[in-house]
């Protein structure tokens, strides 16, 4: 078992603001063992999703590195499956075609019927056997997010990234989908990193919960190890006092962070040298 399957090292993310560059995330360090399920909680806007986007390769860090299975992450790739808050389905494709789109990319050498079977299998696992040929508009919000889960799992990614996957759902549907996620995850225990602000969700699903400080300059505040054995059963956990102790710890941290006075504003600095963006590219074309 690789204890440093995913290593996030000294991650900084600086955004330019009207008052000068602001470090939203500063010095974020976290290591995940292979097969571990880790959640990041923190207040809205603290930079949780920024960290996840950088790990996904969808955003660039200003400093620091993300190393997955010994290789640095520089771009998005199908080795990392992402489940977004809004499922981002293609409106003109059926549930099956939405899932198969990724499967086709990952298994180009398999026959078409087999690729279809893989997509259908995962949709069946999330309870959408009877809705394979429905389009997103014909599905409820909860069903759409099930398609999002099936799409991510069907690629059998090495790392699963979940960005507030159930944040847009009502609290009961959220519970229902947490059960489905946990069941899917348990079949081969992919390493998973999830961002959430639902304390119950974090405790129920995770091996460790990372509490992120409020930004700017957000970093890892505390880490809570969740000792419950797997497989986990919602009914037993929700009825146990230990679950509520964990919940209490996280709520207390969040409340402290919420009441914390904002850190003194960073003195405006000279603009940081930026990587050659679109404008830089244009200039280099014109000048050079």
């Amino acid at each position: 078992m690789n204890s440093r399957f995913l290593a996030i090292e000294g991650l900084d993310k600086v955004f330019d603001t009207p008052t000068g560059p602001t470090a939203i995330v500063k010095g974020f360090d976290l290591t995940l063992a292979e097969g571990e399920f880790v959640s990041i909680i923190g207040h809205s806007g603290c930079g949780k999703s920024t960290v996840l986007s950088i790990v996904a390769g969808l955003a660039e860090s200003t400093n620091g590195a993300v190393i997955l299975a010994g290789k640095e992450v520089v771009d998005a790739g199908p080795d990392r499956g992402v489940v977004f808050q809004s499922p981002c389905l293609l409106a003109w494709l059926t549930a099956l075609a939405n899932v198969q789109l990724g499967v086709d990319q990952v298994y180009p050498d398999k026959p078409k019927s087999e690729r279809r079977d893989i997509a259908a299998h995962y949709l069946e696992l999330v309870g959408l056997k009877d809705s394979l040929l429905k389009r997103p508009a014909e599905l409820s919000a909860g069903m759409r997010q099930r398609v999002g889960l099936a799409r991510a799992f069907a690629l059998s990614p090495r790392l699963l990234l979940l960005d507030e996957p159930f944040g847009m759902l009502d609290s009961l549907t959220r519970i229902e989908l947490q059960d489905i996620l946990l069941e899917l995850w348990a079949q081969d225990r992919k390493t998973a990193l999830m961002v959430t602000h639902d304390v119950d969700e974090a405790v129920f699903l995770s091996d460790r919960v990372v509490m992120m400080t409020s930004g700017p300059e957000a970093h890892v505040g505390e880490i809570l190890t969740i000792p419950f054995e797997r497989p986990r059963n919602r009914h037993d956990l929700m009825d146990s006092p230990a679950f509520y102790e964990m919940r209490e710890r996280l709520v207390t941290f969040l409340e402290e962070q919420g009441h914390k006075p904002p850190p003194p504003a960073a003195a405006p600095k000279a603009p940081t040298p930026r990587s050659r963006g679109f404008v830089g590219l244009l200039k280099s074309r014109v000048v050079g």
Binding site: D79, R80, Y107, I118, Q187
Partner: peptide, 14 residues
């Protein structure tokens, strides 16, 4: 949920 239907090839980051 049982074992995965197919095991994906190990993909290198693009």
């Amino acid at each position: 949920a049982t074992a995965p239907l197919a095991s994906a090839p190990l993909l290198e980051p693009a």
